[in-house]
């Protein structure tokens, strides 16, 4: 029998989204990150033009329940977000960093927006990789944070992470449009909700090249099968030509730590120092194989293993 590799021709493709801007683009980054661009589902059909990218999570306060094994691994740097960002870029060579401005949460420190902007500016000075600006998850405060961040980061093409239906997201979209940033849309594990939010965002004048989507990452053992199905269906729809799902996919792979197998002290499971990072690496890799283009992670071992592996998606 004559063997022909089962390579499929797809009608659609995923948009390419650039995060960060160099001097020549009006920013001050040393390099940029490009996500997406897939024209096939499996790498054997066609290698991914841009391999999935790992972004290291940095929080602007350590008071957010950072799992023990990560505190131990990172040490004192978690006390200072600027130090944290600088260290992970230098030590682990990550291509992009996410700064979660969680201290702004009214439920946490309720830090004023201006204070968060100072942190953001300090980080933009301290590291020269592209930046993702994360909110605190508070639907009202986040709008204020993102609108201001869009202004403060003028020219840098950051990604604002994230907007959802529970907030006045239109204001964030306007700000992103005005200042040339990327937005991350979020919907809880549902293809139709994801699609309808993207549609609204595109109707407001952003293009596919300005949007990344997060259809929720459920941890290994805590519903990863839902995420597997949702991401797969989204990517297949994109390749079939559904314009409202043709954005790169982002994954909060740190959700892996929601699973008790990752963090709980339980002798019969073996040391959690080994379990946790594996849990994160497996969760991230699973979603990447299903289509994710951006992996938000924070355990150094997991980050390194996954970064190394992802390079091969593009070969």
């Amino acid at each position: 029998p004559e063997y022909e590799p089962p390579v499929e021709e797809y009608e659609g493709c995923v948009a390419e989204v650039q995060i960060g801007a160099t001097r020549s683009d009006g920013g001050s980054r040393d390099r940029v990150v490009v996500l997406g661009g897939e024209r096939a589902y499996f790498p054997f059909e066609e290698p991914r033009p841009n391999p999935p990218v790992v972004t290291f999570d940095v929080f602007d306060t350590p008071d957010v329940g950072i799992p023990g094994p990560i505190r131990e691994e990172l040490g004192d740097v978690i006390e200072d977000p600027v130090d944290w960002a600088r260290t992970v870029v230098k030590r682990y060579g990550v291509d992009i960093v996410t700064v979660h401005l969680v201290s702004t949460s009214p439920k946490l420190h309720d830090a004023p927006v201006e204070e968060a902007m100072e942190t953001l500016e300090d980080i933009l000075d301290a590291v020269k990789v592209p930046i993702i600006v994360g909110g605190s998850g508070d639907p009202e405060k986040d709008v204020e944070v993102f609108v201001k961040a869009a202004e403060v980061c003028e020219g840098e093409r950051v990604m604002l992470s994230s907007i959802n239906e529970d907030m006045d997201f239109e204001r964030v979209v306007e700000a992103a449009k005005e200042h040339g940033h990327v937005v991350l849309t979020f919907a809880p594990v549902d293809v139709n909700l994801m699609k309808s939010l993207n549609k609204k965002v595109l109707n407001r004048g952003l293009s596919k090249e300005d949007v990344v989507m997060d259809p929720t990452t459920c941890a290994l053992g805590y519903g990863i099968e839902y995420t597997i199905d949702v991401m797969t269906r989204i990517r297949l729809a994109a390749l079939k030509g559904d314009e409202h799902l043709q954005m790169p996919i982002s994954s909060g792979s740190t959700n892996a730590w929601a699973a008790r197998e990752a963090w709980m002290k339980e002798e019969s499971w073996g040391p959690r120092e080994y379990r946790g990072p594996l849990w994160e690496a497996v969760t991230a890799t699973t979603v990447a194989l299903c289509g994710a283009d951006l992996l938000m992670m924070f355990h150094p071992w997991a980050v390194q293993v996954v970064m190394e592996a992802m390079e091969y998606m593009a070969e």
Partner: peptide, 18 residues
């Protein structure tokens, strides 16, 4: 046969095959 190494594999199997 380390439980910490087998647990992710067996958990993934349980999830993917539901």
């Amino acid at each position: 046969v380390e439980p910490w190494a087998l647990l992710p594999v067996l958990t993934q199997r349980q999830c993917v095959y539901t």
